[in-house]
Design a binder for these strands. Structure first.
Length: 324
DNA sequence: CATCAGGGCCCTG
DNA sequence: CAGGGCCCTGAT
C-alpha cells in the first residue's frame, strides 16, 4: 500500500433531508462491524468514497434537528473538482442515506404497534443507510459469510491494506476502497494470502462484471424488486442470506425479508416472541402479518434499537450471540 | 492434540 | 432438494 494521500481541497454544501430525519440513527448503525473507511462521533460522520473514478473524503455534520433537518456536507479531494461532479457526489450521498424518503405512512401505521411503537418513538427519522457502492457491498457480504465478526473484520482490513489506499483530511486518516480492477488483475493465490480462504474465488468473480461493465448499479436501482432479485442472485457468491442485505441496504426495498439466518433467528425469537428459539417460518409469517410491505424496515428499527442499547447497557443473551 | 461451528454458497447426485 | 466441501479461527 502506498503512502497516505492528503485531500486538501474542500467544498462545503448544505443538504436538506425530508423531515423527520434522525442524523445519528441514520449515519451510524451499531449492528454493523467497524471498518477503517469511516468514523462516527455524535452529530458527525466521516466516510471516504471512491466515486466516478475519484477518491473523496466526506464529512457530514448535523446542523439541524429531527423536525428541521439540515446536514452540512464537506467533500474533500486531492484536486479541484468541477461543480457538476460535486453535485453528482452529493446526490449519491443523498441516495445512500435515503435522505429523500417519505416514511410518514410507516410512522402513522405503526405508532401503536406494541413492539414497534416504542422503538419508533426513540428512532423516528432513522433511515436505511449504505456506506458502499454495490460492488463494495458485495465484498462486505462475502467477508460476512461463514465467519465470526472478528474474522470478518480481519479479512476486510487485510483487503484494505493490500488493495486499498489511505487518505488524510480534516484531521482523520481513513482507508479507501480499491477499484474492482485491482481484484480483477490480482491472483487467487494473492487473495488467499490475506486469509480469505475460499472467498478468494468469489471476490474475483464478483469484480469481473463491474470491470466488464456488465452490471450497472444506477440502472439496477430503477428495476422492480421482482426483476432485480434474480439478477443479484445470479452474482457468484450471492445467495438467499446475502441478497436481502443488498435489496434492503443498497436498493432501499423496505419489504426485503424472506430469509432468516441462524443467529438472526435467535435475536428475533427474543425480541418478537420473548422465547429462546422460534421456528423461522413462524417468525417470517409474524413479521409479514404485522408489518407487511414495511417488514424489513420495521425489523431494521428493532434491530438497531437493540444494538444502540447495547452501547450503554450489558445484554447478556445478546453478548453470547455476537461472539466477537 | 482433535473436532467443530461460525452472521453461506456452490455443486453434485 | 439434501448434503458435502470449502478457508480460517477460536472455543471446547
Amino acid at each position: 500500500m502506498s503512502a497516505i494521500q492528503p485531500l486538501h481541497i474542500q467544498h462545503d454544501l448544505m443538504l436538506y433531508p425530508s423531515a423527520p430525519f434522525n442524523f445519528d440513527g441514520t449515519v451510524h448503525k451499531p449492528s454493523h462491524f467497524p471498518s477503517s473507511d469511516n468514523v462516527y462521533e455524535e452529530g458527525q460522520y466521516w466516510q471516504t468514497m471512491r466515486f466516478k473514478g475519484r477518491v473523496l473524503g466526506t464529512r457530514m455534520v448535523n446542523k439541524g434537528s429531527i423536525d428541521e433537518p439540515c446536514v452540512e456536507l464537506s467533500v474533500y479531494a486531492a484536486e479541484e473538482i468541477p461543480p457538476d461532479e460535486i453535485k453528482r457526489g452529493s446526490d449519491e450521498i443523498e441516495y445512500r442515506f435515503d435522505m429523500k424518503a417519505d416514511l410518514s405512512d410507516f410512522y402513522r401505521k405503526f405508532a401503536d404497534d406494541e413492539i414497534l411503537g416504542p422503538v419508533l418513538d426513540r428512532w423516528r427519522g432513522m433511515r436505511v443507510m449504505v456506506n458502499a457502492s454495490l460492488y463494495e457491498f458485495l465484498v462486505i457480504a462475502t467477508v460476512l459469510q461463514n465467519a465470526t465478526v472478528k474474522r470478518s473484520v480481519q479479512m476486510f482490513e487485510n483487503l484494505f491494506q493490500r488493495y486499498g489506499s489511505r487518505v488524510a483530511y480534516d484531521g482523520r486518516d481513513l482507508s479507501v476502497y480499491w477499484p474492482p480492477e485491482a481484484i480483477h488483475e490480482t491472483s487467487e493465490e494473492e487473495l488467499r494470502a490475506l486469509k480469505v480462504g475460499y472467498r478468494a474465488k468469489q471476490l474475483k468473480r464478483q469484480a469481473q462484471p463491474f470491470v466488464l461493465g456488465e452490471l450497472n448499479e444506477f440502472h439496477l436501482r430503477t428495476l422492480l424488486t421482482d426483476e432485480l432479485k434474480p439478477i443479484l442472485l445470479n452474482i457468484y457468491g450471492i445467495g438467499p442470506a446475502s441478497v436481502w442485505y443488498l435489496l434492503f441496504e443498497v436498493f432501499k426495498r423496505y419489504d426485503a425479508l424472506d430469509y432468516i439466518s441462524p443467529w438472526e433467528r435467535k435475536i428475533y425469537s427474543r425480541l418478537l416472541f420473548d422465547k429462546e428459539l422460534v421456528d423461522t417460518e413462524v417468525i417470517l409469517d409474524e413479521v409479514s402479518a404485522r408489518w407487511g410491505r414495511w417488514k424489513m424496515l420495521a425489523v431494521h428499527y428493532i434491530f438497531e434499537d437493540l444494538f444502540w442499547q447495547r452501547k450503554t447497557q450489558h445484554i447478556p443473551w445478546l453478548e453470547e450471540l455476537i461472539r466477537l
